[in-house]
Simulated scan of single mutants.
Amino acid sequence: MNNADFHDKSFIFLLLLVSVGLIIILLPFYGAVFWGVILAILFTPLYRRLLRVTRNRKNLAALGTLGACVLIVIVPVILIASSMIHEGVTLVQKIKSGQINPALYTQQILDAAPSPVHRGLERIGLTDVKSLQIKLSEAVMEGSQFLASKAVRIGQNTFQFVVGFAVMLYLMFFLLRDGSALSMRVKQAIPLSAEHKRHLFNKFTTVIRATVKGNILVAITQGALGGLIFWILDIQAALLWAAIMAFLSLLPAVGASLIWAPVAIYFIATGELGSGIILIAFGVFVIGLVDNILRPILVGKDTKLPDYAVLISTLGGMAVFGLNGFVIGPLIAALFFTMWDIFSTSRPHDRA
């Protein structure tokens, strides 16, 4: 091995070593860094408009974009989250005080169930009212303890949350201001042809914008519609269920139906046929159509991913990366298809 090869390999080893070290250092603020990058990409068009308005004053344009992001995204999320927590606590208190009796509701469903269902439930011991009350009371107590522990944990981690939030905004400011220069340096470091790099970077930004904007718009729409029909039907804690449906709507195809479908079954089983039919019709033809129409237009069309790939990559991404996975999963899937497309088109094809 000559000195040049040794120096090159030593440099690559050190480069990988310090890169891994930086990743380890940033892991405690992984969410803050991730969403700082995502929000910077999403708000770059606004930053460019403000840059023209402010006559190329980068700091002023970046600050204006940051303020818009706080008002448009962060403040509404904080308000909705606080309202959701309030309704959740109120719901738990009503269950513990007996105003809401899950065991009674379950028994009403069991009484209306056909005999084959009864036989199946008898085998696992779920037809006795007392056992149901005990099991549901235990579930409620475990749920309330879980919520209490989470509240304590949130209180203990307030400082870490504030620091992470500040890191996200700070990073977003510099990514907006210096994003063009940074992206150029990254492009120069990637050992690919100019055409391939342009294709990959375009796909990267397109998938992020389509996934975040598309999925969040679908989630907000389905959650709002679900909350509206729950409020009309006078279902307890409609805002809480709306938020849960919005969160579950990040899962394509199934999503919000995991909430409204059991409620509709309960209505029908307890004799409230009108409410059950209304909820099913609204869930299938209104909430369901939002997913079937908007998601392919907003997500699948821009990412150019088939529906099954969007579903599987979203589920897999959320299983591995948590909530952030609804962006990371489809992004990795889109880059996977793009890389293989580049690989297959760049290779010389054998003539038949």
Rank of each mutant, 00 (worst) to 15 (best):
residue 166 A to N: 06
residue 155 G to Y: 08
residue 168 M to V: 03
residue 161 F to C: 01
residue 176 L to K: 06
residue 180 S to V: 14
residue 177 R to N: 01
residue 165 F to R: 01
residue 153 R to A: 10
residue 175 L to S: 02
residue 157 N to R: 13
residue 193 S to Q: 05
residue 188 Q to H: 12
residue 147 L to I: 15
residue 178 D to M: 06
residue 146 F to K: 05
residue 192 L to Q: 08
residue 147 L to Q: 07
residue 195 E to K: 09
residue 143 G to V: 04
residue 205 T to R: 12
residue 184 M to K: 15
residue 203 K to E: 00
residue 190 I to Q: 00
residue 175 L to E: 01
residue 180 S to M: 07
residue 204 F to I: 00
residue 165 F to E: 00
residue 149 S to Y: 05
residue 162 V to T: 11
residue 158 T to F: 13
residue 161 F to A: 05
residue 182 L to P: 05
residue 184 M to Q: 14
residue 148 A to H: 03
residue 188 Q to D: 14
residue 172 M to C: 03
residue 164 G to S: 15
residue 194 A to D: 10
residue 199 H to T: 15
residue 150 K to V: 14
residue 153 R to Y: 06
residue 142 E to F: 13
residue 192 L to N: 00
residue 169 L to E: 08
residue 149 S to Q: 10
residue 145 Q to L: 09
residue 169 L to T: 12
residue 145 Q to P: 01
residue 159 F to R: 10
residue 205 T to E: 10
residue 148 A to G: 01
residue 177 R to K: 12
residue 193 S to N: 07
residue 158 T to I: 12
residue 162 V to R: 05
residue 161 F to N: 02
residue 180 S to I: 12
residue 153 R to V: 07
residue 146 F to H: 07
residue 166 A to R: 04
residue 185 R to L: 05
residue 150 K to W: 14
residue 171 L to T: 06
residue 159 F to D: 07
residue 203 K to R: 08
residue 143 G to M: 06
residue 178 D to E: 13
residue 197 K to S: 13
residue 154 I to G: 04
residue 174 F to D: 03
residue 160 Q to I: 08
residue 179 G to M: 12
residue 146 F to V: 05
residue 145 Q to C: 02
residue 155 G to S: 06
residue 155 G to H: 08
residue 156 Q to D: 09
residue 197 K to N: 12
residue 195 E to C: 03
residue 200 L to P: 03
residue 156 Q to W: 11
residue 172 M to T: 00
residue 197 K to F: 10
residue 152 V to F: 08
residue 201 F to S: 09
residue 173 F to K: 15
residue 201 F to I: 11
residue 170 Y to I: 09
residue 154 I to P: 00
residue 183 S to R: 13
residue 148 A to E: 00
residue 165 F to C: 04
residue 192 L to D: 03
residue 166 A to W: 09
residue 187 K to F: 02
residue 179 G to T: 14
residue 145 Q to E: 11
residue 164 G to M: 12
residue 177 R to W: 01
